[in-house]
Write a protein that binds this DNA or RNA. Structure first.
Lengths: 166, 166
DNA sequence: CGGGCTTGGTTCAAGTTTTAAGCAAATCTA
DNA sequence: TAGATTTGCTTAAAACTTGAACCAAGCCCG
C-alpha cells in the first residue's frame, strides 16, 4: 500500500504539537523540580492519590490512571516513600497487591505546591486559550486516548502494549 | 494573590491532554523502537537533518529546532554516530562549532522507516480528526510555543530556562 | 594587546525510564 | 484439586535525560 503522507496542514499541526508538548513538559518539570523537588509525573502521583477515596490506590489502578507502566510506578513510589510522602500498604483482599497511600506529609507538600503548579499550567496554556479552544482541546485528545487504548487497533499491531516480539 | 484553580472544563481538557500525550509518545516510541531501533526523538533528529540544506545542521540550531537541550542532543548524536547514521563534522567558520550531518545510511534508514511512522501518526491522531480540528490543533499549540519561548514571560520567572538558582 | 564576558559544545554524576525477567498469589480447567 | 495460566508487582541492567560543571574559541573594550 502506498503511503499517505501528511498534508501541509497536518504537518504544521504535528510540528506545533510536538514542539509545544516538549516545551510544556519541560516547563512543568522545571517549575515543580524547583518548588517541590520532584518531576511532574511524581507530582501527578501525589495529586491522583489525594483525590482517591481514603487517599490510597492500588498500584495497578494508579498506573492505569496515569497511563504509565507498573514498573515505572514502582520506581517512582519507592522514591516518594523514601521521601516520606507516600506509604506502601498491603492489600487485604489480594495478598499479591500493594496499595500506595498518601501520607499527611505528602498531602502537605501537595497543598503547598499546588498553587504554583496551577499558575504554571495557566501561564503556559490556558491563559492563551478561548473557552471554545478549551473544548476543542478536550475533544481532540479524548479522541486520541480512545484511539490508543479504548478502541481496538486491530490493524495497527504495534500500537498494542507488549505485542510479543515478531 | 489567591489561586485561580482550573474550572471543570479546563480540568477535563488538561487531563485529556496529559493522558493522551503520554499514550501518544509511548505509541510512537514503541513503533519506532520496533521498526527503526530508536526512540522518537532520535528519529526526529534524522528527519530534521534530512530536510536541511546539505543534510547538515549545527548542534545548537538542531537543538533549538527540536526544543531539547544541547546536552541531550550531544548524547543522542553520539549514539547515532556510533550507529553510522550521522557523522560529526567541524564547522569551518567557527572553530568551536560542530555540525551533524546525515549519512547515506542514515538517509536510507529514514526512507525505509518513514512510511510506518506516518501510518502510526495517522492511526493515533489524524485519522480521528476533522480538517477543522487539524486547524484547531495547530492554532492551540503554536500559541503555546509562542508563550513558552517566543514571548517574554516576565511575570513567570520559572518558565525561563536556566533561571539562575534561587 | 590582554583581561573579562559570552557562546558552542562536551562531560560526568545522579536520577529516571525501559525492557525483559522473575516471583508469588490468584484463577482457571480438566 | 493438581497443573497450567494469568495477574500483580518487583527487580536488574541497559538506555536515556538532567543539571551542573567545564573547556576552548570568539568577542568586547579599555
Amino acid at each position: 500500500m502506498t503511503t499517505r503522507w501528511l498534508t501541509p496542514e497536518e504537518q504544521r499541526a504535528w510540528r506545533a504539537y510536538i514542539g509545544a508538548a516538549l516545551l510544556l513538559e519541560d516547563a512543568l518539570d522545571r517549575q515543580l523540580q524547583h518548588d517541590a523537588g520532584m518531576p511532574h509525573m511524581y507530582y501527578s502521583i501525589l495529586s491522583n492519590l489525594s483525590e482517591s477515596p481514603e487517599r490510597r490506590l492500588r498500584m495497578t489502578d494508579l498506573a492505569e490512571r496515569l497511563k504509565i507502566t507498573r514498573s515505572r510506578l514502582t520506581y517512582a513510589v519507592a522514591r516518594l516513600e523514601k521521601d516520606g510522602l507516600v506509604r506502601r500498604e498491603e492489600c487485604r483482599w489480594d495478598k499479591r497487591g500493594s496499595v500506595a497511600a498518601l501520607t499527611d506529609e505528602g498531602m502537605t507538600v501537595l497543598e503547598r505546591t499546588a498553587p504554583g503548579h496551577v499558575a504554571t499550567v495557566r501561564a503556559a496554556l490556558f491563559d492563551h486559550l478561548t473557552p471554545e479552544q478549551v473544548g476543542q482541546l478536550e475533544e481532540i485528545f479524548s479522541g486520541v486516548t480512545q484511539a490508543l487504548q479504548g478502541g481496538e487497533p486491530a490493524d495497527v499491531p504495534w500500537l498494542r502494549r507488549s505485542c510479543s516480539g515478531e
